[in-house]
Design a protein around this nucleic acid. Structure first.
Length: 706
DNA sequence: CCGTACAATGTTTTT
DNA sequence: CATTGTACGG
C-alpha cells in the first residue's frame, strides 16, 4: 500500500480519524458546528476509494447537489485520482434517478415529468376550478396554501384533519372539498406521468418497501452510503436510508441536533436518535472540537443553545484564542443599520478582508431589501442567496413551457400555460382546446395539425411553424431555447410591457446556463431539482469578489471571516409565525445558533429599533429575545443610543387587551393613552414625549397601566 | 368569453 | 407590494 497518499489523515484529530477509518457497519457521527465535518467526510470518501472501493459503489447524499459535487472534487484532489464516479446528490435527485429505472413497477414511464412547486400550484388551480370549488361564498384556501397542506400531510405524516385543526382551523369547513381535491390531484398526477417533490420520495420508498429484489439490486449497486446533514432529513428519508442499506449495513450518517432548521418541511432531528434503532450495532462518534470560531464567538453560541429548553448532545470547545467580543448595534432604523454595515464592510476591505469573506445573514429574504439599496448606492457588489427562485418567475415558466411540450407533448399543464399566452385565448378556450387535444394521439407534429381553428390567431401559426422547425432539425438545448425565445419575444413584450427589460436579463441567464447541457431533458430536470436563484447567474465572472447576502437557511454549512446578523427584533427573528408555538420557537433559536456559528473572527448583531411597514409607516420594534438573554459581559455595545431599558416583560400584547382611553407604557416613549384600535394588531397612541403614533403590537411592546 | 381596471388581502424558511 | 378576486366594457 502506498502510504504517502494517505498523508491527509495526519491532519485529522483522533475522533475524525476514527470516523474515516470506520468503513464497515452503521456509523452515526454527531458533529458540532465548525468541527471539521466536511473535511472528515471528504477524507472518508478518499479513504474508501484508496482502500479499493470502486467510486461508483459509493453513494453520497447531501443537502444540495453543489455540496456533493464539491466534496467529490476535494476527494479527487486529495487522492490525485478521479472520484467523479461517486454518486452524489440530494435525496430528491437520487429518487428521481432511481424512479427512472424502477418507476415502471408503479406504472410510471422513464420520462415522467417532475412538478416544481409552481407547477403543482397551477395544477391544483386547474383542478379546483374544474371541481367548482371556486365560486363559494366563503374563501377556499389559495393554491399555495393547498400545496403546503398536502405536503405537510406527507412529510409530517399527519392526517388532513390534524393539519387543518392545528394550523388552519379557518379551513375546517372545507375539509371534504380539500380532501376531494387532494384525491383528484393524486389521480391526475398518476394518469399524466407527473410527480411532485413529495412523490419522488414516496414512490421510491414504496418500491423499496414492496420489492425485496429491488432492495437487493440497489444494495449491490451502492455498497457504501453516506448521508450529510442527517438532522434535516424527515421520516421518509430515514426509511429510504434504512432500506437502501439493508443488505450491507454500510451506512454512515452525520448530523447535529442543535442545527436542525427544516422542521417546517417535516425534518426531525430525532431521526438522529432513531438511527441506532434502524441499524443494529451502530457505532457513535462525536466531533466536539470547533476549529472555526474564536472563543468569544463560541461563548455566545453556547449560551444561545444552553438557554434552550431542549437538551442537546454536545458541548463545543475550541483551542483558538479569545478573539474580539461580538458587537451589538442598536440602530435607529433600518437605514442606519444598512449604513453601519456598508461602513464596516468598506473598513474591513481596507484591512484586506475579501468581500467574499464577509456575509450578512437574515431570517427572511425581504429583511435585506433596505441593505440592498444601500449597497447598490455605494457600489459594493453583492450576491444574494435565498428568496425568489428564478424558476418561479412567470416569464421563465412561460419559456420553459414551450420546451416541456417538445419533450412531452402530453404535458397539458404546459399546453395550458402556452395557450393562455396567446391573444384572444382565455381560460375557457384553453380548457376546450386541451380537452380536444387529449383525444389526439400521436407525435407533436400531428397534434399541432389538430389545434382547433377556434383560435385564428397569427401566434398559433407562428407556433406551429416553430415546432415544425424544432422537430425536424437536431438543435442543441441552447439553440432550441434561442428559437423559442425569438418566437416568445413579441408575446413577452406585450404581457410584461411594464418591466420586460428587467425580466429579459433572467432569460439571458437561462440561455447562458443551457450551454452546459447536451440534452433538453437533463436541462429541465436539473432546473427543477436544483432551482436557480434570481441573479445567481447574472454575475458570471467567478473571479470577482462579492459580499454575500443570504438567508440563514441558505447559509447552512458555510463560513465567513465576518458575519453580520440583521433584523434581530421580535417578529422578524424570531419570526412572528413561530411566536405562539414552543417547538417552532426552539427552531428559531437553533437558526440563530446556526447563524452565529458561521463566523470565524468577527460577529455583528444588528437590531433596528424602528422598522418601516408598508402602509403603516414607521413602527417601533422590540429587540429579539435571543439577544436580550445574552449576558452583557459577552458583548461589546456599539454606540449605544440613549434609550431606556427594554421592557423585561415577555407578555405578548394584543389589542384585545386594550380599549380606547387605556393608559399604557412604552419602553421608549414612556406613558401614553390609547386613542384608537385600528386593527387587532395595531393601535394609535398619544405619547407626551412623541405625540400621536401608530404602533404595531407585533413589534412594539406595550404595557397596560392599571 | 376575453382583457383590463380596481379592490382586497396577507406576507418564512426549501427540495 | 405583489398576487388574487371581482366588476364591467368590448
Amino acid at each position: 500500500m502506498v502510504l504517502e497518499n494517505l498523508s491527509f489523515l495526519r491532519e485529522l484529530n483522533s475522533s475524525q480519524q476514527r470516523v474515516v477509518k470506520t468503513s464497515f457497519g452503521p456509523l452515526l457521527v454527531i458533529a458540532g458546528a465548525g468541527s471539521g465535518k466536511t473535511k472528515t467526510l471528504v477524507c472518508r470518501l478518499a479513504y474508501l476509494v484508496h482502500q479499493g472501493v470502486p467510486p461508483e459503489k459509493i453513494l453520497l447524499l447531501t443537502f444540495t447537489r453543489k455540496a456533493a459535487k464539491e466534496m467529490i472534487e476535494r476527494a479527487s484532489e486529495l487522492l490525485k485520482r478521479d472520484c467523479q464516479k461517486i454518486s452524489g446528490g440530494t435525496f430528491h435527485s437520487l429518487c428521481q434517478y432511481m424512479l427512472r429505472f424502477y418507476g415502471y413497477l408503479l406504472g410510471y414511464h422513464s420520462n415522467f415529468t417532475i412538478l416544481d412547486r409552481s407547477d403543482a400550484e397551477d395544477l391544483l388551480n386547474l383542478l379546483r376550478n374544474s371541481l367548482g370549488f371556486t365560486d363559494k361564498k366563503k374563501r377556499f384556501p389559495k393554491k399555495d396554501t393547498l400545496v403546503t397542506i398536502y405536503s405537510k400531510i406527507i412529510n409530517q405524516r399527519k392526517s388532513l384533519e390534524e393539519i387543518l385543526s392545528y394550523e388552519y382551523p379557518q379551513f375546517l369547513d372545507f375539509f371534504h372539498e380539500i380532501e376531494k381535491l387532494r384525491i383528484e390531484y393524486n389521480n391526475y398526477k398518476k394518469e399524466h406521468q407527473l410527480m411532485d417533490y413529495d412523490d419522488l420520495l414516496i414512490n421510491w420508498l414504496l418500491i423499496l418497501k414492496q420489492y425485496p429484489q429491488v432492495r437487493k439490486e440497489v444494495g449491490e449497486r451502492y455498497n457504501f452510503i453516506m448521508v450529510d446533514e442527517y438532522q434535516d432529513t424527515n421520516y421518509l428519508q430515514g426509511e429510504i436510508v434504512k432500506y437502501m442499506g439493508e443488505i450491507h449495513q454500510n451506512v454512515m450518517v452525520v448530523g447535529d441536533d442543535s442545527q436542525s432548521i427544516y422542521g417546517f418541511r417535516g425534518a426531525n432531528f430525532k431521526n438522529i436518535f432513531e438511527f441506532p434503532n434502524l441499524f443494529k450495532n451502530t457505532k457513535i462518534i462525536k466531533l466536539e472540537q470547533n476549529y472555526r470560531s474564536t472563543q468569544a464567538i463560541l461563548d455566545l453560541a453556547n449560551i444561545i443553545i444552553s438557554n434552550s429548553k431542549i437538551k442537546y448532545t454536545k458541548n463545543l470547545y475550541t483551542l483558538r484564542k479569545e478573539g474580539e467580543k461580538p458587537v451589538l448595534f442598536k440602530a435607529k432604523d433600518e437605514a442606519e443599520a444598512s449604513k453601519f454595515i456598508a461602513d464596516r464592510v468598506l473598513e474591513l476591505r481596507e484591512k484586506g478582508v475579501k468581500l467574499s469573506q464577509i456575509s450578512v445573514l437574515f431570517r427572511s429574504a425581504f429583511h435585506s431589501f433596505d441593505l440592498e439599496v444601500e449597497l447598490s448606492k455605494r457600489g459594493i457588489p453583492f450576491i444574494k442567496y435565498g428568496g425568489l427562485k428564478l424558476l418561479e418567475s412567470a416569464h421563465i415558466k412561460d419559456l420553459l413551457s414551450f420546451l416541456k411540450i417538445l419533450i412531452n407533448p402530453k404535458d397539458f399543464l404546459a399546453w395550458h400555460r402556452i395557450l393562455l399566452l396567446l391573444e384572444g385565448v382565455g381560460p375557457k378556450t384553453a380548457e376546450k382546446t386541451i380537452n380536444y387535444l387529449k383525444t389526439v394521439e400521436g407525435h407533436l407534429n400531428y397534434i399541432l395539425e389538430k389545434i382547433p381553428p377556434q383560435i385564428p390567431t397569427k401566434e398559433v401559426k407562428h407556433l406551429v411553424k416553430l415546432y415544425k422547425e424544432l422537430l425536424f432539425k437536431n438543435f442543441s438545448p441552447t439553440e432550441v431555447l434561442i428559437k423559442v425565445w425569438e418566437n416568445y419575444y413579441p408575446i413577452f413584450q406585450r404581457i410584461y410591457y411594464e418591466d420586460y427589460l428587467k425580466r429579459e436579463k433572467d432569460i439571458e441567464s437561462l440561455i447562458a446556463l443551457s450551454e452546459k447541457y447536451s440534452s433538453l431533458e437533463e436541462f429541465l430536470t436539473d432546473l427543477v431539482l436544483e432551482p436557480l436563484e434570481v441573479g445567481e447567474l447574472g454575475n458570471i465572472s467567478k473571479e470577482e469578489e462579492f459580499l454575500v447576502l443570504s438567508t440563514i437557511h441558505s447559509a447552512k454549512g458555510l463560513e465567513w471571516h465576518t458575519v453580520f446578523i440583521i433584523s434581530l427584533i421580535e417578529g422578524r427573528f424570531p419570526s412572528y409565525h413561530s411566536l405562539q408555538k414552543e417547538e417552532e420557537l426552539e427552531e428559531e433559536r437553533r437558526l440563530f445558533y446556526v447563524a452565529v456559528t458561521r463566523a470565524r473572527e468577527k460577529l455583528f448583531l444588528i437590531a433596528p429599533t424602528t422598522v418601516y411597514l408598508p402602509g403603516e409607516g414607521r413602527v417601533l420594534a422590540k429587540i429579539s429575545r435571543f439577544v436580550q438573554e445574552i449576558p452583557p459581559s459577552l458583548l461589546n455595545y456599539y454606540n449605544e443610543t440613549p434609550t431606556h431599558q427594554e421592557s423585561t416583560h415577555n407578555t405578548k400584547a394584543v389589542s384585545s387587551c386594550f380599549k380606547i382611553g387605556d393608559l399604557v407604557k412604552h419602553p421608549h416613549f414612556g406613558e401614553g393613552e390609547i386613542l384608537e384600535i385600528v386593527s387587532p394588531e395595531k393601535v394609535k397612541v398619544y405619547f407626551e414625549k412623541k405625540g400621536i403614533t401608530l404602533l404595531h403590537l407585533k413589534y412594539a411592546s406595550l404595557e397596560k397601566l392599571i
